[in-house]
Design a protein around this nucleic acid. Structure first.
Length: 588
RNA sequence: GCCCGCGUAGCUCAGGGGAUAGAGCAACUGCCUCCUAAGCAGUAGGUCGCAGGUUCGAUUCCUGCCGCGGGCGCCA
């Protein structure tokens, strides 16, 4: 389907017909647009094994291909580069096909697989902070990319809802309000439907309880005990914990909703609780575990390791499970219940050792067979102006909800500064500010590579000038405005005709690049390639827009062609921005 | 100590072994009786941390060194 595949096939045939591997025929978009639109470098790597001169090979390939009617110009350059320029007629045909393709040229995987994207990972009772931003934004984008590629993708927020902090909160609350029925060891319920604590209460108690656990040994011991009892199923604790979980999720949903991040599953560590004991029994029975100072561990070190990989702890000395235990059980659960073949973890890259341990343990225990792909696609951090992880003036981690509110407020100011969306209804204006703010936040994040740390700069991100989300939205809105005007005048898109000037030709060439860019982004789980692409597309469109005055074009065929180009540009913008999780307003 | 990541223009960042290393911002010069100038055209700005190696070819792959950040069993 894609243009590059066609051209690579053509050149591959030529290489094959002179007795060389057809893989050498690979054609790519040119890095030297002054010399050609495409290039084929195959003669250079082909020369050595064939014991031949690369320029001679290139010349022979060039001669073989030169009769092709799709090609306007071929040249041999340097040590053996072949530069290729298509005829404008052929380019127009290609673009016409692209414009009529519902998928805009983007391919699908041959074999759709069940994929789980694990991202988000906020903790119950704990305020979401900037650290949750990147997994949410990147994970959402990767989920959408893999889904568009044709996979069956399930997004799981995977809450931290089952660890020691739960015990700490139970003990903290039991001291504050011992009269609540949840703490009566002899009671079995039923318990009140109404939560005894709000999410604000929990968020207040959390740091206090966590500090006490560090400073006060008896509190820590009580919390440990409560955690074990909770996990063992003590009715009052379970009921209380359900309240913690419920009010926390409600608060998280609001934040994720603002961010446009949607999960298919709101599972967590607790989801697999019932699987854990049987799993451990089985592993112990199979002799896959070892006791280490009273803890049950799986050795995951390998003789070939260049570094020390500590064993994975399945159960602490006191019997409580750890997050590695539930991660292991979760792999098992996803394979059994969802038929998962690929599991993608979008989690801070600093947790790579943990995932290495868990993945190894899952292989060694046979929980994940060799066909199952396990990936930790780590994300970098969001840094403040000082280059260190983002903090507030008080030195605390910035609340994610505050960050979102800040960005939206700044977007609102930007609209005022630029006298945009003036005179619009209040609710539409608010909606636009929201979308502009989110585009700023997300594009500011996603145009960086997933693993790199980046500096959060609200003024730069929300600017309408330069490589920003708002610039993209502005471009998209301007296109919508043209198409609206065209529709009002009764103008509509027609067949693409041969380009007759550079900005038009360049826009067409750009549009033809999406399939390869998408493939690269999907393969590497790297949305930044799409972010970069969409900026280049808008920039190319703006250059086209500058020179080609669409609505006043007198040549009806050319105008029709341009309108199709404009529509196709908009469709790509909508598609790619959607893959990035960015939504476009109708106007601004 | 061991392991992982990073080091590219004044700043923030891209860069799939290929030719003359890019973008945005900031600086400077032009362009609005014309579909949204939040735009476009142009100028200037670089020993791609340092030193080796592999290769026809290295910012890209490998090794060492320097600098910065991070991780290293009973937290998540």
């Amino acid at each position: 389907m894609s243009l590059l595949n066609d051209l690579s096939g053509l050149f591959g045939d030529a290489f094959a017909s002179i007795g060389l591997d057809r893989a050498f025929g690979e054609v790519s978009f040119s890095q030297r647009p002054d010399l050609g639109q495409f290039q084929c470098n195959g003669a250079l790597p082909a020369a050595k094994p064939a014991g031949r001169n690369p320029r001679q090979i290139a010349q022979e390939v060039l001669d073989l291909v030169s009769g092709d009617e799709r090609i306007a110009e071929l040249s041999l350059a340097g040590p053996g580069f072949i530069n290729i320029t298509l005829t404008d007629e052929f380019l127009a045909i290609e673009l016409d096909a692209l414009a009529h393709d519902p998928r805009l040229g983007v391919g699908k995987v041959a074999e759709p697989l069940s994929v789980v994207v694990d991202y988000g990972g906020p903790n119950v009772a704990k305020e979401m902070h900037v650290g949750h931003l990147r997994p949410a934004i990147i994970g959402e984008s990767i989920k959408r990319i893999l889904r568009f590629e044709g996979h069956h993708v399930t997004g799981d927020v995977h809450l931290g809802d089952w660890g020691t902090p739960m015990g700490q909160l139970i003990v903290e609350l039991s001291e504050r309000t011992p009269e609540l029925p949840y703490f009566d060891p002899s009671a079995t319920g039923p318990y009140p439907a109404e939560s005894p604590v709000s999410v604000a209460d929990l968020q207040l108690m959390y740091p206090i309880a966590s500090r006490r656990a560090k400073d006060d040994a008896s509190f820590a011991e009580a919390a440990r005990q409560a955690t074990v009892e909770l996990q063992d199923g003590r009715p009052g604790y379970r009921a209380l914990w359900q309240h913690f979980r419920r009010v926390s999720i409600d608060a998280m949903r609001d934040v994720y909703e603002d961010l446009g991040v949607h999960f298919d599953l709101w599972n967590g560590e607790s989801t697999v609780h019932d699987r854990i004991q049987p799993m451990i029994d089985r592993l112990v029975g199979a002799g896959l575990t070892r006791l280490s100072d009273g803890a049950i561990v799986v050795d995951v070190a390998d003789e070939a390791d260049s570094k020390e990989i500590p064993p994975l702890l399945l159960a602490k000395t006191d019997g409580a499970y750890l997050y590695g235990t539930s991660d292991l059980a979760t792999i098992e659960e996803r394979i059994e219940d969802l038929g998962a073949r690929i599991m993608v973890y979008v989690v801070d890259v600093r947790q790579s050792l943990h995932f290495e341990q868990v993945f190894r343990a899952s292989r060694l225990t046979g929980i994940a067979g060799p066909r199952v792909v396990l990936e930790h696609d780590g994300n970098g951090t969001v840094n403040g102006p000082d280059g260190k992880p983002f903090k507030t003036r008080d030195g605390d981690l910035l609340r994610l909800a505050d960050l979102v509110a800040m960005v939206i407020a700044r977007a609102q100011e930007r609209l005022d500064e630029n006298q945009l969306a003036t005179g619009y209804p209040e609710d539409e204006r608010d909606r636009i500010a929201h979308l502009v703010g989110m585009s700023a936040l997300k594009f500011g994040d996603l145009h960086n590579h997933r693993t790199s740390n980046y500096m959060f700069d609200i003024d730069r991100f929300t600017s309408f000038e330069g490589k920003t989300g708002p610039y993209l939205l502005y471009g998209a809105v301007r296109i919508k405005s043209i198409l609206r005007e065209a529709a009002e005048r009764g103008l509509h898109g027609g067949p693409i005709v041969a380009a007759d000037r550079d900005p038009e030709r360049n826009l067409m060439l750009r549009l033809a690049r999406l399939p390869e860019i998408f493939e690269r982004a999907a393969e590497h789980r790297a949305p930044n390639h799409l972010a970069e692409y969409i900026y280049e597309l808008v920039a190319d469109f703006n250059r086209f827009y500058e020179v080609c005055h669409i609505l006043s074009e007198p040549d009806v065929a050319r105008q029709g062609s341009w309108l199709t180009l404009v529509q196709t540009t908009l469709r790509q913008l909508e598609l790619v921005l959607d893959l990035l999780g960015i939504e476009i307003p109708e106007r601004m």
